[in-house]
């Protein structure tokens, strides 16, 4: 039982990170219909940003979330402006290959600059933990989880209760109609891409705290994020959160209970992708009205 609860708690903490990464992928897909392979690398850059800033200044990485988000916001907009934006009207496969190229480039720049070492941050209170019953919780990990939740909350608020959020929703549903109600569709695309990169930056901070920082950390995460987006659909954040929990918990349980399970756990997300795509060929992507 204890093991079960511990696995559950670990799963939930990981789910927070997954949901945050998936959210960024999702808004770009939903609003400009682009699958951004490079999103994982944005997370990776965020993680290195956090790591190096911590090494240089010793400031708690969780406090760095804001400047990292800001920097990534600007980077995201620049990348959109010069690469993704110009091919928006081209076949989706061109966009996929383009973002893949960006992903490959960023990954290898990171390899070149910082080699393949796994890096981790250790703050003074890294070992501080508290217990609820028999469950042991690291304060640092919980704080990182809360940061992920907070970011999702901010995004959720922005997309639902602000005029810009309404514009994002409008653009995701109908671009012609959006421009006919006075929405500058290009700006919405630009800002959305920037915002997605910013969330990736925050996710990177969480990664640097919860896991290790290395050049292909984003590539590992992006495939899981795909699985979540495919499973959860484009409709509501609820779908994304549930899908993140499903994935993270099943990974956690498989890792805990199946013999040498951590290896099998890696495959869970891929099996989910395959099962969902085959059983719902239209993809859960198209399903918006299950909210």
């Amino acid at each position: 039982m204890e093991m079960f609860i511990q696995a559950t708690v670990n799963g939930i903490i990981t789910a927070g990170l997954y949901a945050l990464v998936a959210y960024g992928l999702l808004i770009v897909l939903g609003i400009m219909n682009v699958v951004n392979f490079a999103h994982g690398e944005f997370v990776m850059i965020g993680a290195y940003f956090s790591y190096w800033a911590f090494i240089a200044t010793g400031v708690d990485p969780l406090l760095l979330a804001l400047p990292v988000a800001l920097a990534m916001f600007l980077c995201g907009m620049a990348i959109y402006k010069f690469t993704v934006g110009p091919v928006l009207r081209e076949p989706s496969i061109n966009q996929l290959v383009l973002t893949f190229g960006i992903s490959l480039t960023l990954q290898n720049v990171a390899l070149l600059l910082w080699n393949a070492d796994l890096r981790s941050i250790s703050v003074p209170y890294a070992d501080v933990s508290f217990s609820i019953g028999s469950i042991n919780l690291g304060v640092f990990r919980v704080a990182a989880f809360l940061l992920a939740c907070l970011s999702i909350g901010i995004l959720q608020f922005t997309t639902h209760y602000t005029r810009f959020g309404k514009a994002m929703q409008a653009v995701s549903q109908n671009k012609t109609a959006s421009s006919l109600v006075g929405i500058n569709v290009n700006s919405v695309h630009l800002l959305t891409f920037g915002a997605a990169a910013a969330t990736a930056g925050v996710a990177g901070v969480v990664v640097s705290v919860l896991m290790y920082t290395f050049p292909t950390v984003g590539a590992h995460l992006i495939l899981k994020a795909f699985a979540i987006v495919i499973l959860g659909g484009l409709g509501s954040i609820l779908g994304t959160i549930i899908a993140s929990l499903v994935l993270a918990l099943s990974e956690s349980y498989v890792g805990t209970y199946v013999p040498s399970g951590s290896g099998w756990a890696e495959g869970v997300s891929f099996l989910l992708i395959i099962a969902v795509l085959i059983m719902r060929p239209q993809g859960l992507f198209g399903v918006r009205d299950h909210d």
Binding site: R163, T176, A177, V181, G182, I183, R288
Partner: peptide
């Protein structure tokens, strides 16, 4: 526009409000 081009997944009121929002 031709074919109405509504925001299908939004409420009637949200559709109308978006007309004025920008």
């Amino acid at each position: 526009p031709e074919g109405r081009q509504l925001f299908q997944y939004m409420s009637v009121e949200d559709n109308l409000m978006l007309g004025a929002a920008f």
